[in-house]
Computed example of a mutant assay.
Amino acid sequence: MTVQFYWYPKCGTCRKAKKWLDEHQVDYEAIHIVDNPPSNAELKNIIDKSGLPYKKFFNTSGKKYRELGLKDKLTDATEDEMLEYLASDGMLLKRPLTVGEDKVTVGFQEETFEQNWN
């Protein structure tokens, strides 16, 4: 099984996750999250598969998130509106985003990767 690994090469957390995948010989397709962000439909599928709330997919510490004032906007936003924001700019997505056939991880925590991708 090949997992989709959405990452930003300049992100230290993404590089740690990639190193973990390499060391554990996980078969993955690396996708640059800014150059090739997931589409609205792909994101909806990923979020639904994860079972996580939409807000978990936002990079809340990112510059773009702050510039757009999303902290306040998301309190009343619908899921469709959140999808629009997320699909509009790969920098708004929490990364890395790792997607398998029936699993999704957001961010990188070694224990979570161990449980899901090993």
Rank of each mutant, 00 (worst) to 15 (best):
Y65D: 15
N59L: 07
C14Q: 04
V34G: 06
P9I: 10
E84C: 13
K73V: 13
L83H: 09
L86T: 14
M82P: 00
Y6T: 02
E79I: 06
K16C: 15
Q115A: 14
V104R: 08
Y65V: 04
V99H: 00
I47P: 00
L43I: 02
E101V: 14
G107C: 09
V26M: 14
S39R: 06
W20T: 07
Y8M: 15
G107L: 09
D89Y: 04
G62I: 02
K64A: 05
K18P: 15
P53T: 15
Y6D: 10
S61Q: 12
E42F: 08
Y28Q: 01
L70R: 00
N116P: 01
D80G: 08
L97C: 07
Y6R: 01
W117L: 10
F113D: 02
K56A: 15
Y6C: 00
A30I: 02
G51M: 07
V106H: 02
L86F: 04
T60W: 01
F57M: 03
L74A: 02
Y28W: 12
V106D: 04
L97Y: 06
A30L: 03
P38A: 14
A87P: 00
E110T: 11
A41L: 14
W7C: 09
G107E: 03
Y85F: 14
C14N: 01
A17S: 03
K44C: 04
I47Q: 04
L93E: 09
K73F: 08
W7D: 10
I31A: 01
D80F: 10
S50G: 06
H24G: 00
E81F: 08
D22N: 14
S88K: 04
K73E: 11
P37F: 11
P37W: 06
L83Y: 09
S88T: 08
K64T: 11
E81L: 12
K64L: 15
T105P: 00
K19C: 09
S39G: 00
D48C: 02
E84L: 15
A30M: 05
T112A: 01
L43C: 12
R15N: 05
G90E: 08
K18N: 13
L74I: 09
Y54R: 03
S39P: 02
Y54P: 10
F5M: 03
P96A: 08
K63M: 13
K49S: 06
F108E: 11
E23M: 13
G100H: 05
Y8Q: 00
Y28T: 04
D102N: 12
L21C: 14
K16T: 14
D48K: 05
Y28D: 06
C14L: 09
K55L: 14
K71L: 05
Q25P: 13
S50H: 05
T112L: 13
L92K: 03
R66T: 07
D72Q: 07
E29T: 07
A77L: 03
L92W: 03
Q25Y: 06
K44F: 09
N116M: 05
D35N: 03
V26A: 04
V3S: 01
A41R: 05
L74G: 04
K64H: 12
K18E: 14
E114G: 09
L92D: 04
